[in-house]
Simulated assay, not measured.
Amino acid sequence: MMGLISELKLAVPWGHIAAKAWGSHQAAPVLCLHGWLDNANSFDRLIPLLPKDFYYVAMDFGGHGLSSHYSPGFPYYHQNFVSEVRRVAAALKWNRFSLLGHSFGGTVGGMFSCIFPEMVDKLILLDSSPFALDTNEMDNLLTYKRRAMEHVLQVEASGKAARVVSPEEMLQGFLKNNSHVGEACGKHLLRRGTAQAATGVWLNRDRRITWLEYCLDFVSRELFVHYIKNLQAHVLLINECWWLTAVSFRTE
Results as ranks from 00 to 15, higher is better:
F174H: 07
P117H: 11
G173Y: 09
F112I: 03
L46A: 10
V235N: 03
A233L: 00
A28K: 12
H64C: 13
A162Y: 05
A11S: 12
G35W: 08
R96P: 13
N136D: 12
L125K: 08
I115P: 00
M119D: 06
F61T: 00
L153K: 07
M2K: 15
T199V: 09
A132F: 09
D206E: 08
G159S: 15
E84Q: 12
R147F: 01
M119F: 01
H151E: 11
L141D: 07
L212Y: 01
N239V: 11
D127M: 13
F61W: 07
C32R: 00
S24A: 06
V164D: 12
L212K: 07
R146C: 05
G106E: 02
Y227P: 05
Y55F: 10
M138K: 06
H102I: 15
L46I: 15
H188D: 11
E150F: 04
W211N: 08
G73R: 00
E168T: 14
N177K: 15
K122Y: 04
R163E: 14
E150H: 10
F116Q: 13
M59T: 09
G193M: 10
G15C: 10
L49S: 08
W243Q: 09
H180F: 12
L212W: 01
A198W: 00
L203G: 09
W242L: 11
P75D: 03
I17L: 07
E183G: 13
A19L: 01
V12A: 00
